[in-house]
Design a protein around this nucleic acid. Structure first.
Ligand SMILES: [Mn+2]
Ligand SMILES: [Mn+2]
Ligand SMILES: [Zn+2]
Ligand SMILES: [Zn+2]
Lengths: 151, 151
DNA sequence: GTGATAATTGGAATAATTCCAAGTCGCAGT
DNA sequence: ACTGCGACTTGGAATTATTCCAATTATCAC
């Protein structure tokens, strides 16, 4: 998927929600797509500034919030750490590597999701399920994680 | 399990970690056991004050942290909301009811945990798994959740 | 172009938690 | 019982991530 195709998809999603496409929103989204390492708002801010030196942190927060509302990006939280942002739209869990601090995407087979819904007692209706692993990942796993796949 | 048995268990765990049993720690733990509704630190503070009017919020935070370290209590986070505390030691997921704001414990069958570990690629070693459902629960489910069971 | 509306901006405010330095308590050894 | 020492508690200051706000600036429809 080319850059202009992503840009197109963004404009479309924004328009669908009655929102405008702006340079700030474009660049924030582009930055998330370029390096999918679950950056924090601060990290996004730093990356975006090299392209839009006058953008404010408040705007980065606004843009990220907008992208989450449009379902183009997921907000991810570990404990009380700063919120991280993930443009991977496939159903996936997160593996938080305690030694490196890195976050890896773990694809979720549909069977797992249906099995999880089965453990809910009568009357519980889940709209979303979030799964977080915490532990260590071997070096070699750098390239084995599902993270960089393009849906 | 009687109150004094819980108190005994607490002293034991604390001693195991080279820590002392104090009135503050006792009452914080008792409060968590008495009403298992996943209270925040502030809520614990309010409940403890009726018994120990001079306790400080800092001490409540300290005690909660200690109980978590001793594995008598789990810290639970939803998004960026305040940390909640749960004395249920069985393996369980959390169901966050968006309309009531209430949190329900959902028992996790061991089979689900082993299946979840199976989806991890080579080289990923998970020390813990956290599962959070978000949605709505029917009134009737008030009494069907696993929450009040005693292990 | 002009006006209405949406978006951005810098800085102040907020909320939860942690930090810190001072006081207090509990206990081991005398 | 007394003393000393480390553990614990306390109030308030500091921290951190995020949100709020009021003022500007940009965008779109007409
Ligand atoms: Mn992290
Ligand atoms: Mn909640
Ligand atoms: Zn992700
Ligand atoms: Zn629980």
């Amino acid at each position: 998927m080319t850059a202009s195709e992503n840009s197109e998809a963004l404009s479309q999603r924004l328009a669908d929600s009655g929102l405008r496409s702006t340079p700030q929103r474009e660049v924030v989204y582009t930055v998330l797509l370029k390096k999918r390492d679950h950056p924090t708002a601060d990290e996004v801010y730093a990356r975006v500034k090299s392209e839009l030196p006058t953008i404010s942190l408040a705007t980065v927060y606004n843009c990220l919030e907008t992208l989450v509302q449009c379902d183009l990006v997921r907000a991810v939280n570990f404990e009380r750490g700063p919120t991280r942002y993930c443009p991977n739209l496939r159903p996936h869990a997160h593996f938080h590597d305690e030694s490196t601090g890195r976050t890896h995407d773990i694809d979720l087979p549909p069977t797992v999701l249906t099995e999880l819904n089965r453990i809910l007692p009568q009357g519980f209706d889940a709209k979303s399920i979030e799964i977080t692993f915490r532990g260590q990942a071997k070096e070699s796993s750098e390239h084995r994680a599902a993270g960089s796949g393009h849906s």
